[in-house]
Nucleic acid binder design. Structure first.
Lengths: 203, 203
DNA sequence: AGGAAATTTTGCAGAAAGTGCAAGTTTTCT
DNA sequence: AGAAAACTTGCACTTTCTGCAAAATTTCCT
């Protein structure tokens, strides 16, 4: 994606990163993305407001830029894994393979979680991205399970997996004392033997 | 809610309903809520644009007005049921008790589903409502299971239940040949014995 | 019924997001 | 260097949504 080609490409990448970072910084400073206006972000990154909107359709997109990158990668990770193991395992392994804990700074993640939690506009934006992701992943899952796309099963499996990942992530951000992959595995395990009773978790 | 008190109350309810219906009608006519502007909705309902925004914060809220009413009722339904049965059963029964199939016209639901599916702004809005609902329901589930609110289990159970309901609803809208409660029960059943293999469903 | 009080409607002004367009800059390529 | 391609910018414009104060309407009390 970030090909080390010409100066132009590098500049563009730098601008995009600067805009994204500026959005985060300003949002934290002002205690919420809604208190930040596009003009300020553009100014902070040293470009015009119009240019900001050339790079991102909204403040929300700017703030969650690298998160979206990550989500995009997960499609690939999933596609690889469904070839040589059961869907459920493929989903779990794909989630774990994202290595969010290694790729991002814990504080940054917590910070962003805070912002998302407190802002309807960010929740909204994320939901839209989620739906797009779900739709794409659904095709993979449906094919892997040999089911029709409007069967309930692939949707339930995929939904449960993404729910596990989301819940595990949130939990880990609040209690970063255990490794993330372990927490993800534990969340997934809850679906493996029936949900009726709480699943025992490792001490 | 719709107390048959004075004229004023009745007029307000009528206006609100008129605005909501006008939003739906115009959205269908123009093939998407994004093609409809607030001015048109207000005009169609015979009030000023400002008044439209007195009733609803957005077009999306107007379109999904009665859906939100329903979601609000589900909190009550759930709270009742967690008292005398296991959480999972309470969740399933609460979902079924909504009787969406009886309370709404099938065509209207399909119509709205179509609109939501094709509009990021509606997806966004619904997500925000969903998060609010999830948060409130989580308190109930956590208490009922005797777990802490930041344990993963209550979130997973609640998430799985709402996922089941959503998937069942979508499936039923696309294939309304079986009764909705049966479809919901089937979706829930997938989580009762482990997700590893597709759950057999009644022929 | 009549009039005061409470509530609702409405228009206006204004902030902010987001988009199209055309002109000005910068990078690339030959 | 110089033409071509790509990027940036300013400007005008549409739309959403909010605050405020003036009108209009409903309710309530006597």
């Amino acid at each position: 994606m970030a090909d080390q080609t010409g100066l132009r490409e590098r500049k563009k990448a730098a601008t995009k990163a600067a805009l994204s970072q500026a959005t985060l910084r300003l949002s934290v400073e002002k205690g919420g993305i809604d208190a930040v206006i596009a003009d300020d972000i553009a100014a902070a990154a040293g470009v015009s407001t119009r240019t900001f909107h050339n790079y991102f359709p909204s403040k929300e997109a700017a703030l969650l830029y690298d998160f979206n990158e990550l989500v995009a990668q997960m499609i690939g990770a999933l596609r690889e894994r469904v070839r040589d193991r059961p869907v459920w395992d493929a989903l779990r392994d794909a989630c774990i393979s994202m290595r969010i804990d290694e790729r991002f700074d814990l504080e940054l993640l917590q910070c962003r979680e805070q912002l998302i939690h407190g802002s309807p506009s960010l929740i909204s934006y994320q939901a839209t991205q989620f739906v797009a992701f779900f739709t794409e992943a659904l095709g993979i899952v449906a094919e892997a399970t040999g089911s029709d796309e409007d069967d309930m099963y692939p949707r339930l499996v995929l939904g449960a997996a993404l729910l596990s990942m989301k819940v595990a992530n949130e939990h880990w951000l609040a209690h970063p004392d255990r490794p993330l992959d372990e927490v993800i595995a534990e969340a997934f395990a809850n679906f493996e033997t029936g949900l009726a009773r709480p699943h025992d978790h490792a001490p």
